[in-house]
Each structure stands twice: as C-alpha cells, then as structure tokens.
C-alpha cells in the first residue's frame, strides 16, 4: 500500500518535472517576435506567442496559461514601450522565473532597439492612451525587424553558447534574404509613395514612414478610444478638404467603423494583417510584408 502511494507520488513528480528538453523555450508577447525567433533559432528553439494577430496586445489579460508559459521560458521577447503594461508585469512577478526578469539576458524589449516615433512631449491621459516611450507598433516597418533580429540572434547565442555559431550563421542568412526582400518591397510599393490614407488606430506610423504614405486622419479620436459616430463625421469633413485614397485597419480592429466610413467617403477600406497570422497569406515574416504590400497595391488600384 505504502509503496504504491510512493510510486504514485514519484510518478506525479516525474510528470510535473517534465524532462529537460534540448530546445530553448522562447516566450514571445506578439506573433512577429515568435516568427523572428523561429527564423533565427530553427529547431533549436520552441517559440510560444502570448497573443495572436486577432488580439489587441494592449488589452489581453494575465491569463493563468501565460504565467505557466513564462515560468518555463528561457528567453522572453516583447515589444515593450508599455504595449504589454496591463499584463506582462504580473506574468513576470508571478512566474518565479529569475532568468527572464528585466535586466537579465533572458529579457528582450524590441522597441528599445529601434528609433521610435510619436514620442509624447507631455504625458496626459486627456490625450488618450499615450505611451511615454512612443508608438509601440514598430513591427510594421521591416527595417525595425532587421534591427531586432541583430539583438535577438546575439541573445540566442549568449543563452545557448554551444550553438552560438549556428545562430549567427542563421542570422547572416536571414539578414541577407531580408535585405533583398526589403529592396523588393520598396520597389513594389513605389506607386504607393505619397498617397493619403486614413488609419483606424495609430498602428501604422512606421509602415507609413517607410513607404511614404501620408496619414490624414484616424478613426479613433484619441489613441485607444473606440471610434464614435460623431468623430467619424468629423473625419468625413476632414476628407472633403484633404481626400484620402484608402482606409486602413489591422486584423483585430472592428471592421464596422472603417466599412461605415468607406461607404460614406466612397473610398476602399483595406484590412492589413498587422502581424504574422493576421491573414491567411501572412504565414511568416516574409509573407506578412508580401501580403501587406499586395493588399495596399490592390486597394489603391481599385480606388
């Protein structure tokens, strides 16, 4: 009897302890960083993404499943700049994992690695949900992805020194293909330069800066404040003076405000994937930008 109890306990512990896997566990707050980790780590890593392209990463909650994932992570990569401020601090504190706390090699904040736009000069919530460290949606410019890739490859090499050469080689390969792709996208997107657009949320500033699009209005009156009918009317008035060619939203945005305005202003509304998984076509980082530019070109041509 006693023995069976002991063996049962031993079995339970063995189940809980889970054999140490060779693969490094990467916890990514957003799908783009999980995709980047996969591109640089190959099968040496196992990436988990806390959010999907259909979730607003600012609004999800500190779910128990996420605490469990952070508990076992070897490396955590998040956008930062307060995008995950509503849930990440709880995951970090409750995980009991020392390896991924801020200021350790296992913690990487992508936004810190790139020049940020829309740095507020005054912090006042009357201006909506502004982020003191600038606009956090840095992944919409592929040149930012390249910047983050450098740091991520270095971290992987640092955390798994036995395979450092492998990570660096993979990064070199990725970087060469990525630079070539950027050149291709820039060429493809040349007709988009200078066109005027309306964005649902201040999500695309980095993309617009990269491709030279001009944002004339946003459907949210202030960042994080859902579009209201009265504000949409204001946008319509703006568009009479400063017409736009497209209305752009991301996969997790409600379609109704942009569809409503599209009908009123008689310009096309286009949904862009925003991140990996936002559309069926955006399966990885390369197809994410292929699809983004394809959709923009198609919509611009139809307007």
């Amino acid at each position: 009897m006693k023995r069976s109890v002991v063996s049962l306990i031993a079995f339970a512990i063995a189940l809980l302890a889970e054999p140490a896997l060779a693969a490094m566990k990467v916890f990514a707050c957003e799908p783009e960083w999980a995709a980047l980790a996969e591109a640089l780590g190959g099968d040496r890593i196992e990436a988990y993404t806390a959010t999907t392209a259909l979730q607003n990463p600012h609004r999800i909650q500190a779910r128990p499943s996420l605490i469990a994932k952070v508990r076992s992570a070897d490396l955590l990569i998040c956008t930062g700049a307060e995008l995950e401020v509503g849930w990440l601090p709880i995951l970090l504190r409750q995980s009991g994992n020392t390896g991924i706390q801020p200021y350790t090699p296992g913690y990487l904040e992508a936004a810190l690695l790139v020049p940020r736009l829309e740095m507020p000069t005054v912090l006042d919530r009357a201006a909506g949900d502004v982020h003191p460290q600038g606009n956090p949606h840095i992944q919409t410019d592929p040149r930012n992805i390249a910047r983050v890739a450098v740091a991520l490859a270095e971290r992987l090499a640092q955390l798994d020194p036995d395979h450092a050469a492998e990570y660096r080689a993979r990064h070199q390969d990725f970087s060469a293909r990525w630079q070539a792709a950027i050149a291709r996208w820039e060429k493809q997107a040349a007709p988009l330069k200078g066109i005027t657009v309306v964005a649902q949320h201040k999500y695309w500033v980095y993309l617009f800066q990269w491709l030279g699009l001009r944002e004339v209005a946003t459907l949210e009156s202030k960042p994080g404040i859902e579009p209201s009918v009265s504000h949409l009317e204001t946008v319509l008035t703006t568009l009479q003076k400063d017409p736009a060619k497209l209305i752009i939203r991301t996969a997790y945005n409600d379609a109704r405000p942009s569809e409503y305005l599209a009908e009123k202003a008689k310009i096309p509304a286009v949904m862009l994937p925003g991140t990996v998984g936002g559309t069926e076509q955006a399966r990885d980082l390369f197809s994410l930008f292929d699809d983004t530019i394809h959709r923009l070109l198609a919509a611009a041509a139809s307007s």
Binding site: L16, I67, A68, S95
Partner: peptide, 8 residues
C-alpha cells in the same frame, strides 16, 4: 508555480 503547460 509548477513547471507544467497547464497552470498549477
């Protein structure tokens, strides 16, 4: 927190 996939 247990090192399991399910939060425990």
């Amino acid at each position: 927190v247990a090192p399991t996939d399910t939060f425990l």
